[in-house]
């Protein structure tokens, strides 16, 4: 039973990370109908920035909690800045181009960012210090769940709520929803569509950065390549839950996280990465709109 619980919570943690990154995909896809392939790299850059800040501040001998907070904030700022810049360079000029062009551009951006970090930093794995303190109250359950997991779960919940508030209850959120429905109409009623798209990228990137810092603390290792697989899996989570839907992204993340966790725990870890793709194929064949998505009829 303990083992089951461990796997369950492990899956939940893993799923939370997928969810945090899936939120960015889902928001971007909802608004410009583009798989932002570079999103995984934004998350990787978040993790790298955090590691760099942590290393510098540790040498300066700062308090760990302060380091963690500063690193988190800097990572969020930088990831957002990268997300914003990526959109301006690689996607904005292609807004009226065929979708294939934007998609290829996104793949190029992903490739560029990976290799930019590889060349400017290192191709090797770097160890990422876990600065999250061990909570006293968790000690008795340490064999099932650690403090890092607790922090991940709570953070995911908070971010989810904040994003939902942003989208459901603010004017910006209303403008986002309008833009995703119909860009031209949104423009006609006076919404600055370019600005809304930028905000979407910034919000998605910030969320990804939080995910990046958390997963790096959890796993304890990063390199330039971590964004790719996680990015694709997060995208699968977004599709699974129903692209464009925020609760869907979280649900999709959890489902994927649990599947991987249980399959690895009870069967074998060899084929861990296969599930995401099997899910993707199955969901796209049987329910292309995802679990929580609504199927729209296409325009003719």
């Amino acid at each position: 039973m303990d083992y089951f619980l461990e796997l369950f919570l492990g899956g939940l943690t893993r799923g939370s990370i997928y969810a945090l990154i899936a939120l960015g995909y889902t928001m971007v896809y909802g608004i410009i109908e583009l798989i932002n392939f570079a999103h995984g790299e934004i998350y990787m850059i978040g993790a790298f920035t955090a590691l760099i800040v942590i290393s510098v501040l540790t040498l300066m001998g700062m308090n760990t909690i302060a380091i963690l907070v500063i690193a988190g904030v800097v990572a969020v700022i930088y990831s957002s800045a990268y997300g914003y810049t990526v959109e301006k360079i690689a996607y904005k000029p292609l807004r009226n181009a065929p979708r294939l062009s934007a998609l290829i551009s996104a793949i190029g951006m992903s490739l560029f960012l990976q290799n930019y970090v590889r060349l400017a930093q290192t191709p090797n794995f770097l160890s990422f210090p876990n600065l999250i303190p061990d909570f006293e109250f968790i000690k008795p359950y340490a064999h099932i769940i650690g403090s890092t997991e607790i922090v991940i779960l709570i953070t995911t919940a908070v971010v989810m709520v904040l994003l939902t508030i942003l989208i459901k209850f603010t004017n910006t959120g209303k403008a986002m929803r309008a833009t995703s429905q119909d860009k031209t109409m949104a423009m006609l009623v006076g919404i600055n569509v370019n600005r809304i798209i930028s905000i979407t990228f910034v919000a998605g990137s910030a969320t990804a950065a939080i995910g990046g810092v958390l997963i790096a603390s959890h796993i304890g290792m990063i390199n330039f390549y971590i964004g790719f697989m996680v990015g694709i899996k997060a995208f699968v989570a977004a599709v699974l839950g129903g692209i464009g839907s925020i609760p869907g992204a979280v649900l999709g993340g959890f489902i994927l996280g649990w599947t991987e966790s249980f399959a690895t725990g009870y069967v074998s870890s060899d084929y861990e990465d296969v599930f995401a793709f099997l899910f993707l194929v199955l969901i796209l064949i049987f329910r292309p709109a995802g679990i929580l998505g609504r199927s729209g009829k296409h325009e003719i």
Partner: peptide
């Protein structure tokens, strides 16, 4: 790195 740049620049 060059390939990535190329994909973006070519598309644009």
């Amino acid at each position: 790195l060059a390939f990535g740049t190329m994909l973006v620049v070519m598309m644009i």
